[in-house]
Design a protein around this nucleic acid. Structure first.
Lengths: 364, 364
DNA sequence: GACAATCTGTCAACCGGTTGCCATCTATTG
DNA sequence: CAATAGATGGCAACCGGTTGACAGATTGTC
């Protein structure tokens, strides 16, 4: 299992008083040859400021606990010494690590990229570090990773979890947990509302003369794959299109190529895939087989990942605001850290159709 | 500044005895409601095994320091309690954090993805966590990030650094540092040898009837951009092609689009770009302007990133073994951790041309 | 069997912050 | 002016491992 840690932002020393004067030359004060004594500690500050170390600790982390005068003296001393808290020393007694865990199915999948970015940005704003781990689409690996992480982080974000609702709730009973791309009772979730985007896609396809649509599904354990299929079915019902569901071996470009055969066999003239990777692979394979896109078959992906507009024709896709999902999930966690048990409901974000060249009028 | 931490692999408790028996049910032994007492400690093990905590510590981290018998007893106890070391507690007295820092110019640039992967995989094998930070192409940001990271990691990898050689050496005098995509005297470096790949590219272009070539450069501070341009010049000399160097505003798809105008103005029929992102943007813009690729203009990128084969035609590119670079750099660091000051020379890895559809015979 | 060399486990100090409790000191009020 | 509440700083214990120093046990040697 691979785990990635996104060190979002290292606070100057505590997130307070962030303005560091660039007064002197840009020299590092403590230049030590080998591995001798390292950075200044609160004890050094205490000595310099003529107070007790505990007072320094309070001045730097408990706003208002010390008098304004002492506060100032200590802050000056801290700045003079170029003090940085030792995160390990802080984490030891408190258990607070200033980190948020994020588990994704596959680090190399660009879909997760925006989620990571979003979570990182929001965490960063509050001096939280993001730790990434990978589940490789396996519920077991995911659970193991989650358990291990949980001891090291203050909270956990699960992007597209593959494990049971029950297991997720168990984790959530231990530390704050937020879920993306899935609804789990009793756990705060951030879920793109696919209906709008799917409606737009199917309406557009119907308007372009399509009558039979195929949906290439994602991983069987993916809640979101089921959800998208339901959305496609509902929209097809409404717009009077036939809809058929096809399996994919894996939610990648390669999986998309492999699905081409089934798509052709299905007789559908329009395809919506579980994600963009599948759409791209499918388009490549169809074009290689001489099928013209979109003249003969229209293709619509999901997510609008990096590279979706590299293809010719560029990929039409239902964009999920992945960055917002990551950001919202992180915000939920940050909220819970503050003690707000708050609403554990579902946060919904909107999806929208991005029309590019891979979908269009059916030329019979 | 954004910093990402790649938590590569969390060892079972110390990397030794990794087989965890899945004996009982999959219940978490310490189920605590709120934030009560957490995981088992070496003190718990000591009590259970009837020895002193320090003996437990030694048994778990200093192989051979305790008798085989005691070792066994302690390991059994540790397993029974499902013990995991507390990384914070360990880092505090030792300073060893089991982490490697990696600074890249841009987290969203897929070029760095393979480097990250490579470093992560290699670090992972030795139970090291990877910490990522972003420099946003700024030497100042990079230096700040590097300084901050340095106090938290055991060693640092700089992928495509933008700061001075001098600054890099200063960092390296503090803790182990390895550099990728650049040569810095006195610091271990991993550098793709671009000559082979460029030679292949230029030879192939010459053979296809091209006489005038343009190189679209990358960031001015990029050592590798200069190096590639030198390689292109040398190869063009050899194969008797004219070569002209064009600037780009930024090394992205957008920068590539903007460069299209200059490319057309240069009269070149073949283009090599600093990286694939530029090549893709350039190709999009040229095609939009009605230029046929590769019939009128051949395009060759650099790196072979994710998505390079999404385009139509697929992108011909000089592949750098980025994954290997990351992996090698991490290996260098791990070596230095073991006390091997070793050779601080340059590790060279090979590049090769990947011929796809965007380059070919010039059709006048 | 006496004595040295080697093993093995224990003691205690330490890493650098945090925090409950208490002693002062100051300010407010009667 | 005395009594009292609140603000402020100090003391010391603690978080969970690590490690140098040392003593007791074991083994080997002559």
């Amino acid at each position: 299992m691979a785990t990635v840690l996104l060190f979002v932002a290292m606070p100057d020393y505590d997130g307070a008083v962030t303005q560091a004067t660039n007064s002197g030359a840009a020299t590092v004060p403590t230049r030590r040859g080998r591995g001798e004594k390292s950075s200044p500690t609160i004890y050094d500050i205490a000595k310099l400021a003529g107070v007790n170390p505990s007072t320094v600790s309070r001045a730097l982390s408990k706003p208002g606990r010390v008098s304004a005068k002492t506060q100032k003296i200590i802050e000056d001393a801290a700045e003079q010494l170029n003090y940085r808290v030792n995160p390990f020393a802080r984490a030891l007694p408190t258990g607070r690590t200033q980190t948020i865990g994020l588990i994704v199915a596959d680090i190399t999948n660009p879909t997760f990229f925006d989620i990571i970015r979003g979570a990182e940005t929001t965490g960063s704003a509050r001096d939280y570090t993001l730790v990434l781990a990978e589940s490789a689409e396996s519920p077991e690996t995911e659970l193991t990773a989650a358990r291990r992480m949980l001891s090291t982080v203050d909270g956990l974000i699960l992007a597209s979890p593959r494990m049971d609702d029950e297991q997720i709730r168990a984790l959530a009973s231990d530390k704050p947990v937020a879920v993306i791309n899935r609804e789990v009772d009793g756990v705060p979730c951030v879920v793109p509302d696919v209906n709008k985007g799917i409606s737009q896609a199917v309406r557009s396809l119907a308007a372009n003369g399509h009558h039979q649509l195929a949906f290439v599904a994602g991983p069987p354990l993916s809640w979101m794959s089921r959800r998208r299929w339901e959305g496609v079915q509902a929209a097809c019902d409404w717009y009077k299109l036939g809809a058929v569901r096809l399996e994919s071996s894996k939610p990648t470009v390669d999986g998309g190529r492999q699905a081409a055969r089934d798509v052709l066999g299905s007789g559908a003239t329009a395809v919506i895939t579980y994600n963009d990777l599948l759409a791209i692979g499918l388009m490549q394979e169809l074009q290689a087989a001489g099928v013209r896109v979109p003249d003969q078959i229209s293709i619509v992906g999901f997510d609008d990942i990096f590279g979706a507009d590299f293809t010719t024709p560029a990929l039409t896709t239902v964009r999920s605001p992945l960055g917002e999902c990551g950001s919202r999930a992180a915000a939920l966690l940050l909220d819970m850290f503050l003690g707000n048990e708050g609403p554990v409901g579902v946060v919904r974000v909107d999806t929208e159709l991005v029309v590019r060249g891979s979908s269009g009028r059916l030329i019979a």
